[in-house]
Computed example of a mutant assay.
Amino acid sequence: MINYEVFEREIEKGNIKDSYIFCGLDEELIKDGINSIIKKTIGEDKDNLNLIKIDGMKTNFDEIMNACETFPLMSEKKVVFVYRANFLRDKSDEASNNIYKYINDYVSNLPPYTILIMYYLFNDKRERANKNKKINSLDKLITVVNCDKLRRDAYIKKISDIFKDKNKEIGKIELMYFSERVQNNFDIIKREIDKLISYTEGREIKKEDINLLISNTGEEDVFDLVELIAQRKIELAMDIMKDILHKSDQHMLIISNLERQFEKLYEIKIGLNEGKKIHDFMSQLKLPQFVCEKLVMQSHRFTEKQLSGIIKLCVNTEKNLKSSGLDKTMEMELLLINTLTVKK
């Protein structure tokens, strides 16, 4: 079993195997890997007759085998691509288990002209390829690519490559900011990049463009998290934080959102002391009335001193998260615990 980064290095060297299983949560990342094999072996033509795609949720073993046995047309190789091959799941129905059994017996006798590629998606982040008995059995016969989250450098490089493929330049600072702000899911990443390119046509991408276009899908979660911090219900706050991490697995994104939330509350707290009203905050923060009303209500739960202290905790946690070798989830939990020590 190899990870995605090892797989990419092998493809760059031209070391292509006769069969693959891809698995993970990020379907777009998986498809990118599969497309790199197709590109290297039979070319990029979408209508290529040597590319056979099979729906893994509707297929049977005979369909897969017949596709593998058919000779390629005017080519040395053909690719049989079985997508969403749910028969590879540990817990499957009888029909799926039968397909798996036949596949297990068949793959060692694949024709030399066939490259068989299958993938299936994890149900959630708790699922692990190395815990799947079917995958572990096939790992002796097929190259299994575990498409887990990329390391930071590889993640940023892949995002940079997407911009390059679309002939759009982005500065290093803006690239880093975009990488930290966007959700770690390449389907979402590609859509957000398309939005940025369309919006900034004819000019360079700026940080303000990223802030404007990338929606903060976790605003309600962050609001709830701050509410629990205000009520000093830290255990419940930890549960909320784990739920947010489960959705995005982006510690930097969460801490930056949390920090911005407390900064808004601090601005509002100062403004209220100066006699400002809701419409002033609407203009100042460029937010709709109902959002400003919610923020004003939430600001009443903290003192000015508390907000200042919690912002400092967020800044320190952000610095720690950028350091290698630290348990990022533990750092986030320590932040929540330390909010209890901030004096009013």
Rank of each mutant, 00 (worst) to 15 (best):
K328Y: 03
N130T: 05
H251V: 03
I37E: 06
A129Q: 07
K131Y: 12
D224Q: 05
L51Q: 10
L295M: 08
Y155C: 12
C292I: 05
I270V: 08
E259Q: 08
R151A: 00
N316K: 11
D47M: 09
G275C: 02
F7C: 10
N338E: 07
N104F: 09
L116I: 01
M241G: 12
I278C: 11
E333N: 07
T41R: 14
H279E: 14
I337M: 10
V82R: 03
L150S: 00
V80M: 04
F122P: 10
K39Q: 10
E44K: 12
K166L: 06
K312E: 12
Q289F: 06
E201W: 13
I30Q: 09
L245F: 01
I268L: 14
Q298G: 08
I170R: 06
A85M: 03
F302K: 10
K328V: 01
V6W: 12
D187M: 13
A154V: 00
D327F: 00
L88Y: 08
E63L: 04
S323V: 00
I270S: 03
R126M: 10
D209Q: 15
N211C: 06
Y266G: 02
I197N: 14
Q298M: 13
C314M: 08
A67K: 05
I240Y: 11
V342C: 03
K140A: 01
I37K: 14
R232H: 00
F71S: 07
I311E: 15
N123Y: 14
D249V: 02
F178G: 10
L212Q: 07
G325L: 10
E180Y: 04
I99F: 10
S308V: 06
N50C: 04
A129E: 05
R126H: 09
K134C: 01
R84K: 13
M297C: 11
L245Y: 12
